[in-house]
C-alpha cells in the first residue's frame, strides 16, 4: 500500500508543457487523413451517379438531366465511400469540418457546358453511362418491395 502515489506524476506535470492546445490563440491543425467534408471538382465530374448509389445515407443526389450534383451536409456521415468509388477522382475528402448549417444544408453544383472538344468527351461519357445503366437495372431488380 502506498499513499500519494501520483505525487511524482503531478510534480512532472507541474513543470511540463500543457496537454491541451491553446485554441483559439493557436489555430487547430487537423491530421491529413481527417474526414471533414466531401467536396467536388464539378468540372471533372462525369455525372455517372456511382456516388449517388453508393452513399449509405442517401446524402448525394445526381440529376443527369440538370447536370447537377448535390450533397446534404447534415445527412453525410463522411464514410469516404463516394470518394473511394469515384472513377474520375473528382470527389475529395477535405480535412476541415463543415461550418454549422443555418437553414438549408443542401449544396448543389451544376456542371458547366464543355467548351472544347465536346465530341470526344461525350463519347467517353456515353460508354460509361451505358455500362452504369445496365448495372442500375440489375440492382433495381434486387430491390425489395
Amino acid at each position: 500500500m502506498s499513499s500519494f502515489s501520483l505525487f511524482g506524476t503531478s510534480l512532472k506535470n507541474l513543470f511540463s508543457k500543457p496537454a491541451t492546445k491553446m485554441y483559439p490563440a493557436k489555430p487547430f491543425e487537423p491530421f491529413e487523413a481527417t474526414r471533414g467534408h466531401v467536396s467536388i471538382d464539378i468540372e471533372k465530374c462525369i455525372l455517372c451517379g456511382l456516388c449517388h448509389r453508393s452513399c449509405p445515407v442517401g446524402a448525394i443526389t445526381v440529376v443527369r438531366e440538370d447536370k447537377s450534383w448535390s450533397i446534404d451536409a447534415l445527412r453525410c456521415i463522411t464514410c469516404n465511400d463516394c470518394v473511394s468509388r469515384c472513377p474520375v477522382s473528382c470527389l475529395t475528402m477535405e480535412v476541415q469540418y463543415m461550418p454549422i448549417a443555418i437553414g438549408e444544408s443542401i449544396s448543389t453544383f451544376v456542371k458547366p457546358e464543355p467548351k472544347e472538344e465536346p465530341e470526344v468527351e461525350a463519347e467517353a461519357g456515353s460508354e460509361e453511362e451505358a455500362e452504369l445503366e445496365a448495372e442500375t437495372e440489375v440492382e433495381a431488380e434486387a430491390e425489395p418491395e
Binding site: 496537454a19 491529413e32 487523413a33 481527417t34 474526414r35 464514410c79 469516404n80 475528402m93
Partner: peptide
Amino acid sequence: YQCWRLRERVLDIFEKTTGGRVILS
C-alpha cells in the same frame, strides 16, 4: 484527468490512420 489524457493519444492514432476519432469506418 491523467487517464483521459493518455486516452487522447489513442484517439489521435485513430484520427491519423482512419480519419475519424470515434466512428472509424
